[in-house]
Write a protein that binds this DNA or RNA. Structure first.
Ligand code: FES
Ligand code: FES
Lengths: 147, 147
DNA sequence: TTTATTAAAGATATTTAGGTCTTTATTGCG
DNA sequence: CGCAATAAAGACCTAAATATCTTTAATAAA
């Protein structure tokens, strides 16, 4: 569904959120450990997220990644997916056509479109904060050691 | 969602169904043209589908691909996806964990699981025949030249 | 039986996603 | 200032998905 890279990106942002709730400013190594992903790959992904201004970074001693003060508006998973997968992600044809077109539908369209839409709505509803809160409440986990 | 290969596989089978309704026994070149996919790649995919006995092939003059007489039980899209993507396809974690586990859920689980299940049900409901019928009725198309 | 036609098989090539390494720039601390 | 710690940047590497090429085997028609 989502690419591994996008999954890492979402998990990494949640890691930053959880760390900052504890007054920390994590670096990419901390994040990578948190989410059980390759350090250097996480570093690359953080570069992308920073470039797209989903969060800030500072280099040097005491540096790391953090959300800005004007982080009033939530980061929706939709935003992350949009950045990592491109806007076409939300309108792909389930049958493999270049575009979805309800006026010239593939034979899966009528069934597939509502499912794709439900997933889009999920991504427009859930935020980095909402995921972090679930984890903080113990309702979910950020990574699993076993299986 | 589905890999390109799986999409080709489904479309190829629908092409065989539509051709055989017209009394034809298509070869991989005909199929490739029907579904607008690379000939040799389609050939490879047909080999896989034949190996898994979703349909039969004969070589030589007048040869091609066709469904057997005991083709009473429908071919569900679920079967095709199972063959092409593996059984783990239907139980993947939307957050990137190795497995989905409701007892130790990721923060997307509660929202994601129903969507994944809806898609699985779609694949268990729709068949190669049902897709072919939609196309035959003019309700959908097998490929699109433009966009 | 020869030939044309077709799929199977296997090797190879290309592209994309995923991942690593090295160097440079920035920052804070002693 | 000089050093240690950190992210950025870019080159590079690896693995998987996608695609192609070549040879072989099977079949039917002439
Ligand atoms: S045309 Fe295929 S999903 Fe809409
Ligand atoms: S644990 Fe992630 S979807 Fe079930």
């Amino acid at each position: 569904m989502l690419s591994k890279t996008t999954e890492y990106a979402i998990r990494a942002l949640v890691s930053v959120e959880l760390n900052s709730r504890k007054g920390q400013r994590p670096g990419f190594k901390t994040i990578a450990r948190d989410i059980d992903a390759p350090e250097q790959y996480v570093a690359k992904i953080m570069q992308t997220l920073t470039r797209f201004k989903l969060l800030k970074s500072v280099r040097g001693r005491g540096g790391g990644f953090f959300f800005t003060e004007d982080y009033q508006q939530d980061i929706f998973l939709y935003d992350v997916v949009w950045i990592m997968e491109g806007k076409t992600f939300f309108t792909r044809c389930g049958f493999g056509f270049k575009h979805c077109d309800a006026n010239n539908p593939c034979p899966l369209h009528n069934e597939y479109e509502p499912i794709r839409e439900a997933f889009t709505q999920l991504l427009k509803k859930e935020t980095i904060r909402s995921l972090a809160t679930k984890i903080e409440k113990g309702e979910a986990v950020l990574s699993r050691l076993s299986v």
